[in-house]
């Protein structure tokens, strides 16, 4: 259990670092989505099922879709 938690936490910090580090927005958003997924697993480990479900659905699902739709429109404006 403890080993799993440590691995997940390392993944969490790593994906957060990558999300901040990359300048490309698309990669950042993908890492943010990974971050949310790892966070979901951690919430489950901490026995918070409702919050895990909410984080999976909102953080990993909806937020990613909204971010994607935002950058898909911003790309277009960059060219000029």
């Amino acid at each position: 259990m403890a080993v799993l938690e440590i691995i997940l936490v390392i993944f969490l910090v790593f994906s957060a670092l990558m999300a901040v580090y990359f300048d490309e927005e698309l990669i950042s958003i993908i890492f943010l989505s990974i971050f949310s997924l790892v966070l979901t697993a951690l919430y489950l480990l901490h026995k918070a099922a409702d919050v895990a479900l909410a984080e999976a659905v909102i953080g990993a699902g909806l937020n990613t879709a909204i971010f994607m739709s935002a950058i898909s429109q911003i790309r277009h404006g960059d060219s000029d």
Partner: peptide, 21 residues
């Protein structure tokens, strides 16, 4: 980059929520 700022804000919130849980 403004999008990165929003990501940063999300990370801040997620950090607080993670700590609470």
């Amino acid at each position: 980059n403004l999008i990165k700022n929003v990501i940063g804000l999300n990370l801040m919130e997620a950090a607080v929520f993670f700590w609470v849980i």
